[in-house]
Design a protein around this nucleic acid. Sequence first.
DNA 1: CATGTAATGATATAACGTAACATCTTAACA
DNA 2: TGTTAAGATGTTACGTTATATCATTACATG
Lengths: 167, 167
Amino acid sequence: MKKKKKNENSSKIFEGHDHGACFGDAITLIEDYFIEKKLQLTPLRRKVFEILIEDHKPLGAYEILDSLGKAGFSSSPPIAYRVLDFLMEHGFVHKVQGLNAFIACSNPEHSHFPTFVICRKCEKVAEVSDEKTRLNLSSPEITDFKIEKTTIELTGICSTCENAEIR
Amino acid sequence: MKKKKKNENSSKIFEGHDHGACFGDAITLIEDYFIEKKLQLTPLRRKVFEILIEDHKPLGAYEILDSLGKAGFSSSPPIAYRVLDFLMEHGFVHKVQGLNAFIACSNPEHSHFPTFVICRKCEKVAEVSDEKTRLNLSSPEITDFKIEKTTIELTGICSTCENAEIR
DNA sequence: CATGTAATGATATAACGTAACATCTTAACA
DNA sequence: TGTTAAGATGTTACGTTATATCATTACATG
Ligand SMILES: [Zn+2]
Ligand SMILES: [Zn+2]
Ligand SMILES: [Zn+2]
Ligand SMILES: [Zn+2]
């Protein structure tokens, strides 16, 4: 199961990738994690995660509910929110606050404080590990505060969209 | 109008401050800015800003609407959202995404990418200038992206609340 | 069987936000 | 000064996002 890490040496966060491998790897990873932690990867939870990892972009709760409905599950709001909360607790899903939407984690192997880079034009979203973009939290202003969770979202325009805008 | 800057040498971001001076300074600042930019600081806009600066904490749009209603203004949703958008455009108000709430800027003199530090227990929120906490955005991952806006929110527990939790 | 616990289902409603259009005010200008 | 255009506010209606609450199912344990 040891695959080459995706985009390891790339400087382009919005590049494509081998999504088949990405999908398979992610499923394996969540299965293993759930077994190890003695959690139930129920059909509902699996389906929600699959919907997110398949689309590989942020989806609103009600979009997820639509998909769930089409797949034969209940599609009442609490269903989605409960499962999403659960998956978020365990680091397999993040919420993109600026879009009121949810996205499968691109790198659940790391315990991390992810940064999301969001193009306002093409609406692509990239998750960047905190190893790459790191807040300077050493300033004395923050020493009397214990950080439990971070929301870091960078909105702007990707080079592809910017080049398109110029002409 | 040259007052000593608030908390200049403090290491505690959740400390109190001279709110009378804070309020007065902020009003003066926004008045001057609006004159300089030939913008209308109308009664409605002034009132919304006063509500926020007075409370000095994040308020939901509907809380603001309540206050507006009590002050004799219309309290239909678009009123608040329009004025908030306007004040945000000019940097006098920020949205705290994690709370769906709005807060007066603590430091509108700077053009900045602010960081918000949010205690989940006492719900106090501090705005920290980007001069203090700065993202490392030099990583090649982000060089093909032009950042226009940042959302940086650190949620956790302040030392006061943590000490209270222990006993 | 009785009880407990985890997960899911279902209804209703709260909270947040916007589109569209009407009315009123201000600033600019002939 | 009256006309006009732009800016600001008001109003209705609606759309979207999220939660509270209670009911049901399934399965484990004593
Ligand atoms: Zn992640
Ligand atoms: Zn783009
Ligand atoms: Zn600010
Ligand atoms: Zn606190």
